[in-house]
Design a binder for these strands. Structure first.
Lengths: 357, 357
DNA sequence: GCGGTTCGTCGAAGCGCTTCACCTGCGTCC
DNA sequence: GGACGCAGGTGAAGCGCTTCGACGAACCGC
């Protein structure tokens, strides 16, 4: 007796709607799903009843019957060395895109470990999985392969066989930065990278950028050195000082650590090196950030929003059992602003480090 | 025919477990839920079968039958002026705590508007709701009251009747900062607050802090001015310059804007004002941040983790239909570090602004 | 040794939805 | 004009789980 439905939960059920509209339950279902043709007349009656009763389909019942929860899992990294704002951008892009595809997002943190993934996937709580912050040799990768649910990685592991990955082409990003500096005439550049921990655990983007920098440098006859870099002012300062002590002719800097950019600028100022007069600087950071820095930074943004959108789109295609490419790499885009310039060659007009402090 | 179960989804069902263990389906259920006494022997047989078969209960079926999804919604703010790292801390604390209570977390963004809340709540996708970034007169508040599901707010609206709220006691935090400065002997202080947009939309924490600052100042005979403050270096610099131009005797600063702290320091340095010699500064920011700044900052942290944990605990108690208090305010804790000191009174030994630049 | 408990287990009735098989009428095609 | 297809609708069988009532067996007090 369906009076129970109303008594128990307070929410009207599909049966209430059907009764109110004078049609069968299945008809209501078809109106909602659009999986069958329904006459204009009936459809409108049903929709009216839905509105009048304030009906919302019960997610559990729907998931049980259709074997689809319309929820995807987003596995977020919550450990040291991550770029919190960038992660947040990903997350919001993912949620927004997922909603457009009529899906919700379940937040799973990596500190629950792979077990969390298995739990939500095996229990059919989620239809598919989005994994962020993928390492080159990630423990979750074999698990994903045997999960029995579609998944998309944000980031690219060493072996992509049987997976789908989306990311900025960080190799290319590294190249682009160096090419820009080389084109301006710089002959020695340095990459101030992610924190050491990020390299140590083999995070793809850090390694790929480094490789791209090295490769482009070799190709353009530029000397390139790489240094990991923590995010606190103290460490940044030490790194920068060390860098210029060791390589006095260093004139170009690639900073791939948004959180450290401000500290790098401060450290350079402390050394009396002006940007871009004495040293050029290109940052891998969001455009908004680059715009507000002083001077405005030549930068390559990580298109978090675009990546998140693509990742969701790929996952949806996999859920629909359409074929998708294994790897999707987005082309980096370098925007020239005020922090890069040709190096000073005329030592006579050189107003650099020595004259200040 | 339960062969269908295995064929269709690949996952073993509770019926498979029951058959394998030679017991009734209900017995397996009771083993899992612990809602009835089960003999040690039977329990072990069932648990063994579960392990052997790799059984995971189907979330949809469970939700349908039990009217509990074991999922809570976390409504995150994703708009301008928020403190991204703090929000992230909240989120991770919430996810971690929720997992300890055997719940998962569904991410809902505010930009879907109140409709998103209604959707997940009415559809029984979630059992309860956690709302962040609450405004004094939040449109979601009336909605929450009529939602028919338990909710907990992180932040405190103007009218808390019938709600449950958790937050740092920002009023007290404002007081504590001023009391510390007053105790050191400062006679004119300024609050560099959140971005103007945050005040404009009536976000509780910003208004309460301001009120606390004003009140404590009045009580201690201190002059206090307040200025909203954007997060980019340009605006911060302008504000700081303006502040000291208008109030040359200003010697104490309360900065409630983690993202601006670095820029404030830079601006002060630019004006030739040393911290803490010429101006004392207390920040509302995470301890870790305060520790790494130079000089180390006297600060009041927002205990995001603790608040998140409490919020989840409250929500769980509401789900269990236990009574909970309307408002839970956490006492702020001020840690004295190196950025505050008594003001310079001996003008003879004053080596401040005028002598530099 | 006989009612009354308590313990451990079982069977079956849903939970609210989707989907399949089926039915009816109607226009269409040779 | 009979076979056919199709649009539009119905009923009922699950989906995999929880939970209620029932039931036998063991245990209690007297």
């Amino acid at each position: 007796m369906s009076r129970r439905g109303r008594v128990a939960s307070g929410q009207p059920t599909i049966a209430d709607v059907a009764r109110h509209a004078g049609v069968a339950v299945s008809t209501v279902s078809y109106v909602l799903s659009g999986k069958r043709a329904i006459s204009e007349l009936t459809r409108n009656r049903v929709l009216a009843s839905i509105r009048v009763l304030g009906y919302h389909p019960n997610a559990g019942a729907r998931a049980l019957a259709s074997r689809r929860s319309n929820v995807i899992a987003l596995v977020l990294p919550l450990r040291s060395g991550i770029q919190v704002p960038v992660v947040m951008q990903f997350a919001t892009a993912v949620v927004t895109s997922a909603r457009r595809h009529d899906h919700d997002v379940l937040l799973v943190t990596s500190d629950e470990g792979p077990e969390g993934l298995r739990r939500v996937a095996a229990g059919a709580l989620v239809d598919g999985v989005l994994v962020m912050d993928v390492e080159l040799h990630d423990v979750r990768v074999p698990l994903l392969r045997g999960l029995g649910r579609p998944s998309v990685l944000i980031g690219v592991p060493a072996d992509t066989a049987g997976l789908s990955c989306v990311d900025l082409d960080f190799h290319r990003a590294g190249q682009v930065c160096v090419e820009h500096l080389a084109g301006l005439g710089h002959r020695r550049v340095a990459l101030l990278g992610a924190p050491a921990a990020v390299y140590d655990r083999g995070t793809g983007f850090a390694h790929r950028t480094r490789a791209g920098v090295a490769e482009a440098a070799a190709r353009h006859g530029v000397e390139a050195v790489t240094m990991p870099c923590e995010e606190n002012a103290t460490d940044v300062r030490r790194r920068v000082v060390e860098l210029f002590a060791r390589y006095p002719d260093l004139s170009g800097l690639v900073v791939q650590n948004e959180a450290a950019v401000g500290a790098v600028q401060a450290a350079l100022a402390g050394l009396g090196r002006r940007v871009p007069h004495d040293v050029s600087m290109v940052a891998v950071c969001p455009d908004q950030f680059a715009e507000h820095a002083g001077p405005r930074l030549t930068s390559v943004p990580v298109p978090a929003e675009e990546i998140g959108r693509q990742a969701v789109a790929l996952l949806m295609r996999k859920l629909a059992e359409e074929p998708v490419p294994e790897t999707t790499l987005l082309e980096p885009r370098l925007t020239v602003r005020d922090s890069t310039a040709p190096p000073v060659v005329d030592t006579a007009s050189y107003g650099g480090p020595a004259s200040v402090r």
